[in-house]
């Protein structure tokens, strides 16, 4: 089946089986490897992307269900102000260990911050609980999200843990 996808502002024509998950179209057809395969059944969040701005698990989203929705992946989220702030905060806090889950973490965090409000600890825990970090960087993820949510972020002096 032929589909036209809009990914990170670009059009892609692909020819894949209709039940192919968006995850594998992104990774193997369009060659955007940032969206990760972790569990295949929506348990780990490593494959989180945005469809028209809403977070979705690409491993559970069949290509036939994407329709005309705009797909945003980790490769494109940096073009948004929130995405750029999150990526900067992630580096500033030095969140990453192996890094495999982090694209999904950032995509979930970007959806959480999309309404422009600073999330409470409870909101961060509720939204981010679906993204597994096997290395255990959770505390830094919480700090980085809060930092990215600050309106003056980017102008304030950088904080780094453990110095």
């Amino acid at each position: 089946m032929r589909y036209t996808l809009h990914v990170n502002g670009r059009r892609h024509n692909v020819d894949v089986d209709s039940d192919t998950p968006l995850l594998w179209v992104l990774r193997d057809t369009i060659n955007l490897k940032g969206t990760k395969f972790g569990c295949g059944i929506g348990l780990c969040g490593a494959c989180t992307v945005h469809l028209d701005g809403a977070p979705a698990r690409a491993c559970l989203t069949a290509i036939s269900d994407v329709g005309n929705k705009a797909v945003t992946t980790i490769e494109g989220i940096g073009a948004t102000p929130i995405g750029a702030r999150l990526q900067k905060a992630w580096l500033d806090i030095d969140v990453v260990q192996c890094g495999y889950c982090q694209p999904g973490q950032i995509m979930s965090a970007a959806a959480l911050l999309a309404n422009g409000k600073t999330p409470s600890d409870g909101e961060i825990d509720a939204v981010m609980n679906g993204n597994i970090c096997r290395c255990g960087t959770y505390n830094r993820i919480r700090i980085a999200i809060k930092q990215a949510a600050q309106s003056d972020f980017g102008t304030a002096p950088n904080k780094r843990k453990g110095a």
């Binding site: 955007l32 490897k33 940032g34 992946t73 980790i74 992630w90 580096l91 890094g99 950032i106 780094r160």
Partner: peptide, 21 residues
Amino acid sequence: HSVPGYESPKLVKGEPLFGID
């Protein structure tokens, strides 16, 4: 002195560094 992970700038952008990539 704290030095951030060398590949982290690429990792937060989803660049293809892993075996599976």
